[in-house]
Nucleic acid binder design. Structure first.
Ligand SMILES: [Zn+2]
Ligand SMILES: [Zn+2]
Ligand SMILES: [Zn+2]
Ligand SMILES: [Zn+2]
Lengths: 142, 142
DNA sequence: GAACGGATGTTATATCATAACACCAATCTG
DNA sequence: CAGATTGGTGTTATGATATAACATCCGTTC
């Protein structure tokens, strides 16, 4: 019952594969770098493929990183939540139904009709928080 | 009991005043345009003033707009929520304590330690949603 | 007065994103 | 089949956002 998918072009498939293989957010220019020599030589091609993939719900744009990541779990793609470690760069997609419901309630309460809800948490992942107990380690997000 | 404030420099005050007067998000370059002729001629000065204001919690950066807005209500500035109308450009800062608590719980549940939580809702404000009953009006966010 | 921190000015550059136009292939449509 | 429509791509150029690196200034502290 999930929405019917448009078939993907070769470039679109290639971009999705690269994002999935990376397992972390990549910028459009990161992708362009990997696609040079495969006939893709200019930003618009990459951005077009990304636009399509985002429309289809297969990829999310992470606004606070200006980067894109493959969706890691099926869900209604108008709402996405990410936890982003500023120390090691780990990005985790979270799904939480109560959160989605509450956001919808909050926006609806003010008459706002949300078509896209984005939540981005910045901080430290469990592993990095444990390592950094006390001494403020310098962050080096990738 | 709100945090002690550092005094603001003249440029910082000027930027905050411009944002408050605008009542809507402005990009760093919007601000630079308004500050030319007042001795501010290059982006770094504006970005530095904005950095300071964001650190002090007086201004928020809206990631999905690459723009900055004066904080409209006192709150713990590590969490901010915005509803952004894609039709008329209206941006409303929302404060909702249960939402903040729930986000903290969700991130904590996975061991993530959040230092900044951002929520951005895109869609249509009450006025625009009412106007657009049915016919898909073309968006023209400002 | 030396040392320091915070802010600024200045030049140059890095990074992210789109406009505009031409071309092509697949699919309707009459 | 001819013509129109849609979606994807290539290409060039440009626009928009953000920072690096270095020099200077100024008020406070020691
Ligand atoms: Zn997802
Ligand atoms: Zn980490
Ligand atoms: Zn605020
Ligand atoms: Zn509106």
């Amino acid at each position: 019952m999930t929405a019917r998918r448009q078939p993907l072009s070769q470039t679109q498939t290639r971009v999705l594969d690269l994002l999935s293989a990376a397992g972390r957010p990549l910028s459009a220019y990161d992708l362009l770098g990997k696609l040079r020599g495969e006939g893709v030589n200019a930003p618009p091609t990459v951005y077009r493929a990304l636009d399509k993939l985002v429309r289809e719900g297969l990829v999310h744009r992470i606004e606070s990183l200006n980067a894109f990541v493959a969706c890691s779990t099926p869900h209604h793609h108008d709402m996405a939540t990410f936890a982003i470690c500023d120390h090691c760069g780990l990005v985790t997609e979270l799904t939480d139904r109560p959160l989605q419901d509450q956001l919808a309630a909050i926006s609806g309460r003010s008459g706002f009709h949300a078509t896209r809800m984005m939540v981005e948490l910045r901080g430290h992942c469990a592993a990095c928080a444990a390592k950094a107990h006390g001494h403020g380690a310098p962050d080096h997000a990738h």
